[in-house]
C-alpha cells in the first residue's frame, strides 16, 4: 500500500509553517511500503494533526494525502472502514479506549470487528503477557492507569492485519523498559506482516531500526 503526500499543508498551521523549514509539510513525499518511518517533531508543530491526516480522521488541509494513488476523499465510508480493518492501524496519542468496556473487551472489539479475526485470543493473551498487562485485562477501561491504557491501545492496534501502522507518541506514558518491550513487540508484528509504520515523537530514540527519519 502506497502512501504519498502532495504539498500537504494544514490550514490551522499555515502561517506558522511558512516561517520554518519542514521535511513533510508542503513537500512531495512518498513512504516506501514496509519501511519504518520516524518523524521527530517539537510540540505544536502538527504531529498529531499529521497522524490524523494520514489516518483520514481530519481533512482541514490543502494538498493531498494519496493512498494507492487516490486521495483519501475518493474512498467511500465502507471502503474506508474496510481499509481501517485490514490495511491501516493506529495508536492514538490520547489512546481512545472505551471506558464502558474492560481492557480485554477493548482489544476484542477490534479483533472481532473482522468477521474472520486475524489473530486468536491466545495471541492477544500472549501479547498482554509480553507487555505485562495480563492482570488488568478484566478491569474496566475507566480504572486503568495511563501506562496500562497505552499498552492496551498498542495491543488493540496489533490484533488486526495492516500494511501501515500509525503511531502518535506511542510510549509517552511508559518507562524505558516497558517502552522497549512494546517497541520489540511492534517491530516483530510489523515484520511478521511485512508492514511499515510511521511514528511521530518529540525526541530522538533508538527503540527501532528506523529506515527513514524526518523532521516535521
Amino acid at each position: 500500500m502506497q502512501i504519498e503526500l502532495s504539498h500537504l499543508v494544514p490550514l490551522p498551521l499555515r502561517d506558522k509553517l511558512q516561517q520554518r523549514p519542514s521535511d513533510i509539510w508542503n513537500k512531495e513525499l512518498s513512504f516506501a511500503p514496509g519501511s519504518f518511518v520516524k518523524i521527530k517533531a517539537p510540540s505544536g508543530s502538527g504531529k498529531t494533526t499529521l497522524v490524523h491526516y494520514l489516518y483520514h480522521i481530519r481533512n482541514d488541509y490543502t494538498g493531498q494525502v494519496l493512498v494507492n494513488g487516490q486521495p483519501w476523499q475518493a474512498y467511500d465510508k465502507e471502503t474506508l472502514a474496510a481499509m481501517r480493518q485490514q490495511q491501516v492501524s493506529i495508536i492514538f496519542q490520547d489512546l481512545r479506549l472505551f471506558e464502558q468496556l474492560t481492557a480485554l473487551e477493548n482489544i476484542e472489539l477490534k479483533r472481532l470487528m473482522l468477521p474472520r479475526p486475524y489473530c486468536t485470543q491466545e495471541k492477544v493473551l500472549e501479547m498482554a503477557e509480553r507487555l505485562q498487562v495480563t492482570h488488568v485485562l478484566p478491569q474496566s477501561g475507566r480504572t486503568l492507569s495511563y501506562g496500562e491504557r497505552q499498552r492496551i491501545a498498542i495491543i488493540r492496534a496489533l490484533v488486526q492485519p495492516f500494511r501501515w501502522l500509525f503511531m502518535d507518541e506511542p510510549f509517552s506514558h511508559l518507562d524505558d523498559d516497558n517502552a522497549q518491550r512494546a517497541a520489540d513487540l511492534i517491530a516483530a508484528e510489523c515484520k511478521g506482516r511485512q508492514a511499515g509504520f510511521i511514528l511521530t515523537d518529540l525526541d530522538n530514540d533508538h527503540r527501532f531500526a528506523y529506515d527513514v527519519n524526518y523532521h516535521l
Binding site: 489516518y55 480522521i57 465510508k77 465502507e78 472502514a81 474496510a82 481499509m83 481501517r84 480493518q85 481512545r96 472505551f98 472489539l109 477490534k110 470487528m113 488486526q160
Partner: peptide, 15 residues
C-alpha cells in the same frame, strides 16, 4: 461519540 470512535477504529457503517 461512541459511534464516531467505533467508525474511527474501522467499524463499517453497514455493521
Amino acid at each position: 461519540r461512541e459511534i464516531q470512535l467505533l467508525v474511527m477504529l474501522g467499524t463499517g457503517p453497514g455493521q
